[in-house]
C-alpha cells in the first residue's frame, strides 16, 4: 500500500514536475507502450464489445418485445454500454492482456537484477520503465473504450436490424436521442480512473516481486485479482457519485 503511494508520487513527479525542470517525458517509449497496450488490444476489444452488444440487444429484445416496447432496445444498449459495460469490459480485457504482462515483465526484470542495474547506472526505473507505461495506459484505455463503445453499439444494431426489422437510420436516431452526453462522460471518467488503477497496481506488484520465477507468477496472479477487484469497487463508487447522488 505504501509502495503504491510512493509509486504514484514518483510517477506524478516525473510526469508533471520534471518536464519543467528540463527532464522531458521521452515520447519514443511511450508510443512503443501505446502500441503494445492499445493498438494490439484492438481485435480483442472489438470481439468482446461486439459480443456484449449483441447479447445485450438479444436480452433486451426478448423481454421488451413481450411488453411491446421493442423500440426501446437501442436505448437499453446505448445506456448500458456507454455508462457501464464499455469501460468495465475493456478494463477487464486490458487487465488480462496488459496489466498481467506489465507485472510479469517488471517482475522478471526485478529477479534478474535488471532493475538494480538500472539504478546503479543512475537511471530511475520509475522514469525509464513505469512512466511510459503509465502515460500509454492513461491514453489508450479511454481510447479503446470509445472504440469498444462503437463496436458494442454496432452489435446492438445487428440484432435490431436483422431480428427486429429496425431501419439503420432509426436505430442511430434512437441512440442519439436517448443517450445523454453525461452517459458518455461518466463512462470516460470511469475508464481514466480504471486505467490509472490498473497500471499503478500492475507496476507496484511487478516491482515488488521477491524470489524467482515462482514469485513472478504469484505477483502476476495477485496483480490481476487486485486490479479487477479494485476496478469493480471504483466502478461502484463512481456510479454512486454520478447517478445516485441526485435522486
Amino acid at each position: 500500500m505504501r509502495d503504491w503511494f510512493t509509486l504514484n508520487a514518483q510517477v506524478l513527479y516525473w510526469l508533471l514536475v520534471a518536464p519543467f525542470r528540463g527532464v522531458p517525458v521521452r515520447l519514443g517509449p511511450v508510443f512503443e507502450q501505446m502500441v503494445r497496450i492499445g493498438v494490439q488490444a484492438v481485435p480483442m476489444t472489438a470481439l468482446t464489445s461486439l459480443s456484449i452488444g449483441i447479447t445485450l440487444a438479444m436480452q433486451g429484445a426478448h423481454e421488451l418485445t413481450r411488453m411491446g416496447a421493442a423500440s426501446f432496445v437501442p436505448d437499453l444498449v446505448a445506456m448500458t454500454i456507454l455508462r457501464e459495460l464499455g469501460p468495465l469490459l475493456v478494463g477487464v480485457v486490458v487487465i488480462g492482456r496488459s496489466g498481467s504482462a506489465v507485472t510479469a515483465e517488471l517482475g522478471t526484470m526485478k529477479v534478474s537484477e535488471e532493475i538494480e542495474a538500472l539504478e546503479v547506472m543512475a537511471i530511475d526505473p520509475m522514469r525509464y520503465l513505469v512512466l511510459p507505461r503509465f502515460v500509454a495506459m492513461l491514453v489508450m484505455l479511454p481510447a479503446l473504450t470509445v472504440f469498444g463503445n462503437y463496436i458494442g453499439m454496432a452489435g446492438g444494431w445487428a440484432i435490431c436490424h436483422f431480428s427486429l426489422d429496425m431501419e439503420t437510420a432509426s436505430y442511430i436516431r434512437r441512440l442519439v436521442e436517448s443517450s445523454h452526453p453525461m452517459d458518455l462522460y461518466s463512462g470516460m471518467v470511469k475508464s481514466v480512473v480504471f486505467a490509472w488503477l490498473i497500471i499503478t497496481i500492475s507496476c507496484v506488484y511487478g516491482l515488488g516481486v521477491k524470489g524467482g520465477a515462482e514469485g513472478v507468477g504469484r505477483a502476476t496472479t495477485n496483480s490481476v485479482v487486485v486490479s479487477i477487484l479494485t476496478m469493480l469497487i471504483a466502478d461502484a463508487c463512481l456510479t454512486a457519485i454520478f447517478f445516485f447522488g441526485e435522486s
Binding site: 515483465e105 522478471t108 534478474s112 537484477e113 535488471e114 538494480e116 542495474a117 547506472m121
Partner: peptide
C-alpha cells in the same frame, strides 16, 4: 553513481 560503473555477476543486461 554517474561517476562509477558496475559490472554485474551475470551481466544484468536488459533482455528487451
Amino acid at each position: 553513481r554517474l561517476r562509477f560503473g558496475m559490472n554485474f555477476q551475470f551481466g544484468a543486461l536488459l533482455q528487451s
